[in-house]
């Protein structure tokens, strides 16, 4: 059974038909990348899965269960998490508080939270040093690490990431993708959205190309990276 499965998803944003029948499958333990230009519907896909946007028709399944109508809170509770575009850390809150909010749904489990936080600090030692600083004082790269760490705190089964490399220096982008690989190696299922197609396809087991609300191409990451059309349109070759 796939971790996440989307069937014929249609979404309207105001009057705009943003998703025109998307089909997408994320198998357990794999990294799936969704690439495409600005406004193609990548973020809308993730926002619809987390129920921030309601679809007009179509189905979303999580481990076989229909979650199309579920509220955001219960989607998160089931084990889906989203690292939002632009990081969106809580700038006035401390690093500690940001991570704690990631585990908001199991506040009673103080020991578990502390353990998870230690794991996050192991993954991102820089965050440990800045535990009591407000998130707004962190650099862009550190904020991205915090956003990823915060998402991990919910003990997700599948982690969705919306443009984690956006606005970061190339060297930091490399760090971010190394982290994605590391998290993947620990067994996490990942759905990754990127404009940086080269890096996204390199890390991906499987990829989808989305154009104006439709999936136009799909295939194993490496195959897509070698595809002529993809190379011309997204890799600038």
């Amino acid at each position: 059974m796939p971790m996440l499965k989307i069937e014929n998803l249609h979404v309207y944003y105001g009057g705009i038909h943003a998703l025109k029948g998307i089909n997408l499958t994320v198998p357990q333990g794999k990294v799936v990348s969704l690439i495409g230009a600005n406004g193609a519907g990548k973020s809308t896909t993730l926002r619809t899965i987390t129920s921030l946007v309601k679809p007009t028709s179509g189905k979303i399944y999580f481990q076989g269960e229909d979650i199309t109508q579920a509220k955001t809170t219960s989607v998160i509770k089931k084990g889906i998490t989203l690292v939002p575009e632009g990081r969106r850390v809580f700038a006035d809150l401390t690093v500690y508080e940001n991570l704690n909010l990631g585990a908001y749904l199991r506040q009673k489990d103080k020991n578990g939270i502390q353990k998870d936080m230690d794991k996050v600090f192991e993954l991102f030692p820089r965050l440990k040093e800045r535990e009591w600083q407000t998130a707004g004082t962190l650099s862009g790269g550190e904020q991205q690490m915090l956003a990823i760490g915060r998402a991990l705190m919910s003990r997700p089964s599948v982690m969705m990431m919306d443009e984690p490399s956006l606005g970061l220096a190339p060297i930091v982008v490399r760090d971010v993708f190394n982290i994605i690989r590391e998290i993947h190696d620990s067994g996490m299922t990942i759905l990754l959205i990127e404009q940086n197609a080269r890096a996204a396809l390199k890390v991906a087991d499987y990829g989808y190309v989305i154009e104006t609300g439709k999936i136009v191409l799909e295939g194993p990451g490496k195959e897509l990276a070698d595809n002529d059309e993809v190379r011309r349109s997204y890799l600038g070759e």
């Binding site: 987390t50 955001t72 809580f90 809150l93 704690n100 909010l101 915060r150």
Partner: peptide, 23 residues
Amino acid sequence: TTAGMAMRAVAKDFETSSLMGIE
């Protein structure tokens, strides 16, 4: 308190707060 922390988060960003599972 946790509720207070959630309150400060919601004051800054509705959407990301709901992604944390906050109602």
